[in-house]
Computed example of a mutant assay.
Amino acid sequence: MARKNVIRTDLIDAVCQKIDLSRTEAAEMVSQVVGEICDSLAAGESVKLSGFGTFHVRDKAERVGRNPKTGVEVPIDPRRAITFIPSDVLRAHLNQSSTPAFGDPKDSEFEERRTA
Rank of each mutant, 00 (worst) to 15 (best):
46 S>I: 04
100 P>W: 10
74 V>G: 00
61 A>S: 09
19 I>K: 02
46 S>T: 11
76 I>R: 05
102 F>Q: 13
91 R>M: 08
88 D>I: 11
40 S>Q: 13
44 G>M: 08
68 P>T: 03
40 S>G: 13
28 E>C: 00
33 V>C: 06
49 L>I: 15
74 V>S: 04
95 N>T: 06
85 I>E: 10
91 R>P: 00
23 R>S: 14
23 R>A: 12
53 G>M: 06
94 L>A: 14
70 T>V: 04
33 V>G: 01
56 H>M: 03
53 G>K: 03
19 I>Y: 00
25 E>A: 14
41 L>D: 08
36 E>A: 15
43 A>S: 11
40 S>C: 14
39 D>A: 13
50 S>D: 12
51 G>K: 08
60 K>Y: 01
45 E>S: 15
44 G>N: 10
66 R>G: 09
19 I>W: 01
91 R>Y: 02
80 R>K: 15
19 I>R: 02
76 I>K: 05
38 C>M: 09
68 P>V: 07
37 I>S: 07
53 G>P: 00
31 S>P: 01
105 P>T: 11
103 G>D: 06
82 I>L: 02
49 L>S: 05
104 D>P: 07
24 T>A: 13
78 P>H: 09
76 I>D: 06
34 V>F: 15
45 E>M: 11
56 H>D: 12
89 V>S: 12
73 E>S: 15
85 I>K: 15
78 P>S: 09
63 R>K: 15
84 F>K: 07
63 R>C: 09
82 I>H: 00
78 P>Q: 06
55 F>D: 02
34 V>E: 09
49 L>N: 01
62 E>C: 03
81 A>G: 04
21 L>Q: 08
105 P>M: 13
57 V>H: 02
75 P>W: 09
64 V>A: 06
76 I>P: 00
30 V>E: 08
65 G>F: 01
92 A>V: 03
55 F>Q: 04
54 T>M: 09
103 G>Y: 08
51 G>I: 04
84 F>H: 07
65 G>W: 02
26 A>H: 05
46 S>C: 07
60 K>W: 02
104 D>N: 13
69 K>C: 04
52 F>T: 09
45 E>I: 01
80 R>G: 05
87 S>K: 12
48 K>C: 04
89 V>I: 12
96 Q>Y: 12
33 V>A: 12
80 R>Y: 02
52 F>Y: 10
68 P>E: 06
61 A>E: 03
98 S>E: 10
29 M>N: 09
41 L>M: 06
100 P>S: 12
64 V>E: 08
97 S>Q: 13
81 A>C: 05
70 T>D: 05
31 S>V: 01
75 P>T: 13
61 A>G: 04
87 S>M: 14
56 H>F: 11
98 S>K: 09
58 R>K: 13
25 E>G: 00
104 D>Q: 08
91 R>F: 02
44 G>Q: 10
84 F>Q: 08
39 D>I: 04
30 V>S: 09
69 K>Y: 03
24 T>I: 10
21 L>H: 05
59 D>Y: 03
